[in-house]
Design a protein around this nucleic acid. Sequence first.
DNA 1: TACATTTGACCCAG
DNA 2: CTGGGTCAAATGTA
Length: 249
Amino acid sequence: MLHLSIDDVMKAFIGAKERLLLMMMLSQQDQTITASSYAPMLSTHDFAMQHATTSMLTSYMNPLFQVQQLPFDHVRALHENKIIGGVDLQEIRYKGTLHIGEKGVRDVERSVRSKSEGNVHGIEASSSPRPRKCRRNDSVKKTMMVPAPEVGNTEIPPEDGFTWRKYGQKEILGSKYPRGYYRCTHQKLYGCQAKKQVQKLDHNSNIFEVTYRGEHTCHMSSTAPSSFPLTQSIISPHLSPLSTSVPST
DNA sequence: TACATTTGACCCAG
DNA sequence: CTGGGTCAAATGTA
């Protein structure tokens, strides 16, 4: 049995190797066209490649890990058409422009609140408003698709090598799942301004849309996390995390 | 006690 | 005016 299993494993890896080679060739063709291929972290395009490759490799271990298998033809389709999980990634990229004109629940809450503001139980409320903060965000923004962990808690996004502290969660109009807001745990200590937003895709709850903002300035600290993000070190070990990024849209 | 998460309120850019 | 980003008190956890 062991002998047969080893044979199966060998066949699986040989097959995977051949497919990887083919995909690398396809990828090289594409790189001449797509500048985003050089982004250090997973762009939507790279994600399709990465996810497809991972799925293909891990699919041979289905009995162990129950990983969803993607047929090779579909993998090609993913690569050429940027479709994943039946969802057009290019459409996802611009989904923020949808759902205009819907009225949120907050309006009602606000109108109720504004009527009672300044007078709480007959006593005048404090007249010292919060200091106004400039919220204009010129920091670079980078969005990527991250598959949810195949095992364990799929409600939380996979580890990226940094420690994050959640500071908010919000229902987003037209989105099925709430968006979580995280900032670097070391913000207080080292003034690290890195932030990220995590939200499940409407059409595929197994994929998180993760948006990174700002850069980690806590690398140099002796107590700050020293390891690079796992995904980063696998995908492009020569580049530092978030060292390059696309301008915010 | 210290740190993380939750969640309603606050604030602001578009 | 509105939706989304952030704040901060309350609460949870180790």
